[in-house]
Write a protein that binds this DNA or RNA. Structure first.
Lengths: 225, 225
DNA sequence: GTTTCACTTCGATGAGCATCGAACTATTGA
DNA sequence: TCAATAGTTCGATGCTCATCGAAGTGAAAC
């Protein structure tokens, strides 16, 4: 028989579980309590939801002492949620009551393992403008000069070769409705930002908070603006 | 605020609506009655579901006399359903009670606008073997000789250039767990199969039924087996 | 040891919603 | 004009499931 998509979809289609999954798009493993707070339910309710999500193989769980850390099962699950975020934001064009935490989210946020938001879109634009990446039939490819550039800032492409993930991949941004960079290279860039101390993850959201000097370095390295 | 993915997901997460959406993955517009039969509910129930799907912008509707034809809203929606089909089939590895209609579905079926199933996977393998397409960092690209080959069988690449869709795109097959060809080229190939009369759509499923001579032509043209 | 904290299980409650019968409108075809 | 067909609206019914209080386990801290 044809697989029944309603099982997985209904797991995501419940607002409490959806909050949890969206929170886990931050890439970080979270405990049951943290997820309960995030979704604004009691720990009993959270426990019930989380066991369903694990059983449905959308999450994996790792036990550490008396804590249980939950995480998205795979990049594939993250990509599914991403697609949902995009379609949803396209539909909900109406009630765009942009709050304060919202503007920070739009500026820079984490999209499972890469950078998203205004800054990510600006970065993508700059890479295209400098001909480090090109869009060809709506696929994103790295150019020879792009390869040289990234090698000069520390990327080891040999290591990526073995990975099963696409190196470059454009990912439609739900807030900007334009492309940003995903794939292994997108992941590397975000890691590099953290490693350099240019920005830090917000404790309880997907917001990425750049510090002033970090932002300056980021702009200059990638020739933004 | 972050878009609330539960709204869209819950629309898909109801089994009756999921049947309807899966049926519409056949690419053909279907009437409310046809979808009611497909999902095994009364016309009243179907009507209620369909209006929700239209309101949620997963479907578009076209009125024709006393009929209403429903269709997936866009390629994006089809891609979302595809991703769901894949994740679902990976999870449901257990109860694989393969029925008779199932084997036809696995052989060749439509995936919104391109060919899927065993034959599609074999086609993809042959194109790779002949170096007409290459996989590079898990992106699928057409080669120079591939371009020549497809031009020789009637593809007009200039027309594709304008389209916003990727030319080649690999799409993971839920039944085979291997890649088949999607994108504009995948769409062209399926259209070409129908135009040549090699196969026809099943009336009430996603099965693509090849006739004997059609299958022979298909195998020889694409050097399969 | 005792206390505290993280998480789970059970059971009762209640809200949301899929379902369909009955009655309706609208279109086609005779 | 009348009958048949496609689809809708309304209201009643009943099931599923999210929710949380109460009570439990098990690990860590003191």
């Amino acid at each position: 028989m044809e697989p029944n998509i309603s099982i997985i979809a209904s797991l995501i289609g419940e607002s409490t579980r959806a909050s949890m999954l969206t929170a886990l798009m931050g890439g970080k493993a979270l405990t049951a309590t943290e997820l309960a707070i995030e979704a604004e339910v009691t720990s009993q309710t959270a426990s019930s939801h989380l066991s369903k999500l694990v059983e449905g193989q959308l999450l994996v769980v790792r036990k550490q002492g008396r804590h249980k850390y939950f995480q998205l099962q795979s990049v594939e699950v993250a990509e599914l949620l991403e697609k949902l975020l995009n379609i949803t934001s396209k539909v909900a064009k109406t009630n765009t009551v942009t709050g304060p935490s919202d503007s920070r989210l739009r500026k820079a946020r984490i999209c499972y393992d890469h950078l998203a938001g205004e800054l990510a879109v600006a970065l993508y634009g700059s890479l295209v403008r400098n001909k480090f990446i090109i869009e060809q039939n709506y696929e994103t490819l790295i150019t020879e000069s792009g390869r040289e550039f990234f090698e000069s800032i520390g990327v080891n492409f040999d290591r990526f070769q073995k990975s099963k993930r696409p190196l470059c991949k454009s990912c439609l941004d739900w807030s900007e409705r334009r492309s940003h960079l995903a794939g292994s290279l997108g992941q590397w860039i975000l890691n590099d930002i953290f490693k350099n101390g240019w920005a830090s993850k917000d404790l309880d959201s997907r917001v990425i908070q750049f510090n002033q000097t970090g932002l300056k370095f980021f702009y200059s390295r990638y020739d933004i603006k």
